[in-house]
């Protein structure tokens, strides 16, 4: 067990990508009650577009910003043109779910058509290795984790200290009350979809910068992000982040010490057990009916 710190560190590094995806899912869900299954594919598409730009000479920092903007705007467009026209109500929520799954499949196929099925090679943002508390980590992963943590801090700041962020929390708690005091639900929805898909692009960008990318770039991380979301509670941003990091660590620990082949089974088995005891997750609120 001498390598436990390394295994945990590695788990936290992958957990930071899951946490960004998980936060994206929760921010979007809280604003429009929609689970956006297309979030991973939207982010992947943005990253494929920007890696092409990077190959043409765009510096990595600019490419990252570009990826966030592309994914964010794509998310906004998804909400505006595919989700909003469905209207409110439980029937349309189910339709919205199917719409996002369909959109994800379409984007996935488009990526395959444009870039082919073989992985494209992506240059790491930085090369080299650094030892942190005796654990060797690639500089690339450290930068990825640092930026992920900075993005999460920025989101925490936005939701805690800005008026629009507080309005987004208010709207998540009670859509109707927010609307009658004059908070524009359309603004909240657009912003939430922008932020949600934008931070997913940060995760996708660094997943790609690990070496290569194909259309399935976010597939496995998104599964783990969803696991983290359900572990933390679908309505809690903090819970989603904590849940996602937990999954990252569990995944690595299970893969290293139990069985590399059954890591998925073990991790998801633990989640099922946790949810059996606490159905709303670590920090999720029991869902209330809204008028």
């Amino acid at each position: 067990m001498g390598d436990l710190p390394a295994v945990i560190a590695s788990g936290l590094v992958s957990g930071s990508a899951y946490a960004l995806l998980a936060l994206g899912i929760v921010i979007i869900f809280r604003s429009t009650d929609t689970v956006n299954f297309a979030i991973g594919d939207t982010a992947t598409l943005a990253v494929f577009l920007t890696t092409s730009a990077m190959a043409a000479g765009l510096p990595p920092a600019a490419a990252l910003v570009l990826a966030v903007l592309i994914a964010g705007l794509a998310g906004m467009a998804t909400e505006r043109f595919l989700i909003r026209p469905l209207g409110a109500g439980h029937k349309s929520l189910f339709i919205a779910l199917v719409v996002t799954i369909g959109l994800g499949l379409i984007i996935h196929a488009v990526i395959g058509v444009i870039w082919g099925q073989r992985p494209i090679v992506v240059a790491p943002v930085a090369t080299g290795t650094v030892r942190v508390f005796g654990v060797a980590l690639t500089l690339n992963k450290i930068i990825a984790t640092g930026i992920a943590l900075a993005a999460m801090a920025a989101i925490a700041w936005l939701f805690r200290f800005t008026a629009i962020g507080v309005a987004m929390r208010a709207s998540a708690e009670d859509h109707f009350a927010a609307r009658i005091i004059g908070i524009r639900p359309t603004v909240i929805a657009s912003l939430a979809w922008f932020i949600g898909c934008g931070i997913a692009a940060i995760a996708a960008f660094f997943l790609a910068a690990d070496g290569s990318a194909n259309a399935n770039l976010t597939l496995s991380p998104l599964f783990r992000a969803f696991a983290g979301v359900f572990l933390g509670g679908l309505t809690s941003m903090l819970g989603a982040a904590v849940g996602a990091f937990t999954i990252g660590v569990l995944d690595n620990v299970a893969g290293r010490y139990l069985s590399a082949n059954y890591r998925d089974t073990i991790v998801f088995g633990i989640i099922v057990a946790v949810l059996f005891i606490r159905p709303s997750g670590f920090l999720g609120a029991a869902r209330k009916e809204r008028v």
């Binding site: 008026a163 629009i164 507080v166 309005a167 929390r169 208010a170 708690e173 009670d174 109707f176 009350a177 927010a178 009658i180 005091i181 004059g182 908070i183």
Partner: peptide, 21 residues
């Protein structure tokens, strides 16, 4: 009343002004 129960008093009041622009 439909106050935002999870938000603070300050946040609830501030939103009243924010919503009115």
């Amino acid at each position: 009343r439909r106050l935002f129960g999870q938000l603070t008093v300050d946040e609830n009041l501030t939103l009243g002004a924010f919503g009115a622009g």
